[in-house]
Amino acid sequence: MVQPELLYSKEHEWVRIEGDRATIGVTDYAQEALGDIVYVELPKPGRTVEQFGDIGVVESVKAVSDLFTPISGEVVEVNAALETDPAAVNRDPYGDGWLVKLKLKDSGEAKNLLAPRDYEKLIAE
């Protein structure tokens, strides 16, 4: 399931850009591949992150995967609910399972991301 209004990275993260704010999460494809997510480690608010740089990890029972941000900016909010309910990422990756909100540095970076159709192609491969 790919959402039409979002942009995607090759590392299976999505971003929703609204003005100078961006919300980031992992895709439905990613949560499926990861299996039952048991813990999410997120950056501290205030940290600046670089496009495609790592911002944390997701853990399933038997695996750990890095999280990369699709876009640069300053972390303004993290999804604190995931601390007690990491399953939200599996349940609702594009909604309740969002990870962080950024204040954008350069919205021009969006050109380095995949449109929904291209991301669909990527995961079909």
Partner: peptide
């Protein structure tokens, strides 16, 4: 449990 902390999963981290 919480095995993702351990060497057999997280290796050098």
């Amino acid at each position: 449990t919480l095995q993702a902390r351990e060497q057999h999963i997280r290796r050098e981290r």
